[in-house]
């Protein structure tokens, strides 16, 4: 009986310390208590370098290498397609949206961009020069294959 009480108490202490250190870690992203209003960081700049970036896997929607401020995409007009559609690339010299954008969900290739690919920024995003808040431990599959080959 005494032993089990001690055990429960020990568990309780260990549990709360663990929870506390975890909450400390989360708090490091914020650095302020709930009541304080931190100074907002500067708004990051959009990267407008026009340099295409590597994709992390073949099916990744490529990130947008140019700024898209005020580009209208709605029922009336699609600014992106005024450069990226099949008929416009000769004049704009932009890469054409790939055939997947002309394909409906049954795999049928349509004459115009498929409605499910009409709103480009659902999948493609312009990038900013903001510093990442947490470290990214993502490993490219090519690196993993390389590491595998080396360990064998």
């Amino acid at each position: 009986m005494k032993r089990s009480t001690f055990f429960i108490a020990a568990m309780f202490v260990a549990g709360t310390t663990l929870a506390q250190s975890a909450s400390d870690e989360i708090a490091t992203l914020r650095h302020y208590t709930l009541g304080d209003e931190p100074e907002p960081p500067r708004i990051a700049d959009i990267i407008d370098s026009d340099e295409r970036r590597a994709r992390i896997h073949p099916m990744q929607p490529p990130t947008i290498p140019h700024k898209i401020d005020n580009y209208q995409v709605d029922l009336r007009a699609n600014r992106c397609l005024s450069c990226h559609s099949r008929t416009r690339v000769e004049e704009s010299q932009a890469p054409m949206v790939s055939v997947t954008h002309y394909t409906d969900r049954d795999g049928i290739v349509l004459a115009e961009v498929s409605p499910r690919r009409y709103f480009c920024t659902q999948c493609h995003a312009a990038q900013t020069d903001a510093k990442p808040l947490v470290q990214n431990t993502f490993q490219d599959v090519a690196d993993m294959l390389g590491a595998d080959a080396a360990s064998q």
């Binding site: 209208q72 029922l75 009336r76 007009a77 600014r79 005024s82 416009r88 004049e91």
Partner: peptide, 16 residues
């Protein structure tokens, strides 16, 4: 086009 305002329905307009 559309530098200062939203665009009208552009279907049929040259270049769109």
């Amino acid at each position: 086009k559309g530098i200062a305002h939203q665009l009208p329905d552009m279907s049929g307009v040259e270049g769109w």
